[in-house]
């Protein structure tokens, strides 16, 4: 199972990949992930790869090799599209984070709907998640990353059941935020199921 998680520095991507990696460890599967630390985290593009299997040989994914793309930001989802193939699940947050190259007027940010329509022309496996709204509903906007994990779990991309993922959340988030994150996970899960 090859998963590409993409987004912007500061969106909590490292935690979400850790939850998935933890679930793999619990299940006795091999896992190899690649993370971004350092300068690129300062509001730049963050690309994290998670590969799970009986034996995993490398931490990166080639074009067409992703079984799922988890996009925390529409433009970043689109930027990763060549990693996907016809049967790849593409789970994306719908809320843009506008880079300063756009807010300063130098470049343009495409309309998110146009991005999604463009993806839908070549894939019938796009799932759109209003992660911010659902996270706020769960109790805090910061839980967007776990909303996204819930939506991803609703697809059959991950080799884990809902319970296995929830157990990994319990192990990997601070205890006082477990309930909040499980609510966020549930809302994301249901949002994706409604679209499938």
């Amino acid at each position: 199972m090859n998963l590409q998680i993409v987004g912007v520095g500061g969106q909590g991507i490292l935690l979400s990949s850790k939850v998935i990696g933890g679930a793999a460890l619990d299940k006795g599967l091999d896992v190899w992930m690649s993370e971004v630390h350092g300068m690129a985290q300062r509001g730049g593009v963050v690309v994290t790869t998670v590969k799970i299997g009986e034996i995993v040989y490398s931490p990166l994914i080639g074009d067409g090799e992703a079984h799922a793309i988890l996009g925390f930001e529409p433009v970043e989802t689109y930027r990763a599209i060549k990693r996907a193939a016809k049967d790849t699940w593409i789970v994306t947050n719908i809320a843009p984070i506008v880079p300063f190259t756009v807010s300063s007027g130098k470049q343009k940010y495409p309309k998110p709907d146009e991005i999604f329509q463009s993806i839908e022309k070549v894939s019938d496996r796009l799932i759109k998640v209003d992660a911010k709204k659902l996270a706020q509903e769960a109790g805090a906007a910061i839980a967007q990353n776990i909303v996204m994990l819930g939506a991803l779990t609703a697809t059959d991309a991950l080799p884990f059941s809902r319970e296995e993922m929830e157990n990994s959340i319990r192990k990997n988030v601070p205890e006082k935020f477990v309930e909040l994150n499980l609510r966020a996970f549930d809302l994301g899960f249901r949002s994706a199921k409604e679209q499938m």
Binding site: V8, G9, G10, M39, A40, Q41, R42, G43, G44, V45, G62, D63, G64, E65, V75, E76, Y78, R79, I81, K82, R83, A84, A85, K86, T88, V98, P99, F100, T101, V102, Q107, K108, Y109, P110, E114, I115, S118, I119, K121, V122, S123
Partner: peptide, 21 residues
Amino acid sequence: PSEEPLQAEDFALPSRPPSLC
């Protein structure tokens, strides 16, 4: 060959270099 990668139409995507927080 690997799986055929998805080829969506070409959008001009904005760049996202790291920036001060």
